[in-house]
């Protein structure tokens, strides 16, 4: 298939967005009963569940650490989440993404509060339409908060990319596939720090600062939605004395 046109002359993208617009986002915490914390996050047609178990006992026990909890993370896509059926089990891509997502979360979780335990995070992508690792990380951070695990900050994530020569925010699948670059970024906004950064594609070094600024703008919007989602479940209105 040849490359379709991704941005019109009027600057409109394939799904009707401008270059600096996020897709429609839905977030909900506490969506799965058996886990200690969970979240569902949707960015357009990208749909992801995340669940957290723990802190709980480590098996086998000799793997436990005397001074802090172990953080385990599995990023996984369902077989039907993509156009062509994904084989069962973990692909190399999923192994790599599990690692970088875990490392992003390790940056903010107070693991030393729970020595000799482990915290398990499972991310399931039920439909992939671009930005699954960033959506997964955004959901995982909410699930950790829902599980009551102390963190220095929530983590919000989004990809910026280059499509038809232009920098755009929050790539969808077709933009990722046919675009020139995909740069997923996650931040701990309170610390103005990047906790996940990857680049697949080409961005000239002169464009780089603009790409980062665009990502940060999107991340601040996502961060606000995350806090709102948590408040929807956890805020309490005083009922008055009885």
């Amino acid at each position: 298939m040849s490359k379709p046109k991704l941005i019109t002359e009027d600057g409109i993208r394939t799904d009707g967005r401008r270059f600096d617009e996020l897709r429609p986002i839905k977030m909900e915490v506490g969506v799965l009963d058996k886990s200690d914390g969970s979240a569902y996050v949707e960015f357009g047609k990208t749909r992801v569940f995340a669940a957290v178990f723990g802190p709980r006992e480590v098996h086998p026990r000799h793997l436990s650490l005397p001074d802090r909890a172990i953080l385990n993370c599995r990023y996984h896509m369902t077989s039907f989440s993509v156009e062509e059926r994904k084989p069962l089990g973990m692909t190399r891509r999923e192994v790599e993404l599990s690692k970088v997502i875990r490392e992003a979360l390790e940056t903010v979780v107070f693991l030393e509060e729970f020595p000799r335990t482990c915290i398990d995070i499972y991310i399931e992508v039920v439909q992939a339409d671009g930005g699954t690792r960033t959506t997964g990380l955004t959901a995982a951070s909410l699930a950790l908060a829902d599980a009551g695990i102390p963190m220095a900050d929530l983590i919000a994530a989004v990809a910026v990319g280059k499509v038809d020569g232009q920098l755009v925010l929050d790539l969808n699948d077709i933009e990722d596939k046919y675009g020139e670059a995909d740069m997923p970024i996650a931040m701990a906004p309170r610390f103005d720090s990047i906790v996940l950064l990857q680049l697949n594609g080409r961005i000239s070094k002169d464009e780089f600062p603009r790409a980062l600024a665009l990502a940060k703008k999107g991340i601040m919007e996502i961060y606000k939605l995350q806090r709102e989602a948590l408040k929807r479940k956890y805020s309490a209105t005083p009922q008055g004395g009885m």
């Binding site: 990047i194 906790v195 996940l196 950064l197 080409r202 000239s204 070094k205 600062p209 980062l212």
Partner: peptide, 24 residues
């Protein structure tokens, strides 16, 4: 990077924060 001044790959490969103001 490539020889033309494009950044062609990035991987943050360890836990920890990269302060935004250091990136440039």
């Amino acid at each position: 990077t490539d020889e033309k001044g494009n950044v062609v790959s990035i991987q943050k490969n360890s836990p920890g924060p990269v302060p935004m103001n250091l990136m440039d």
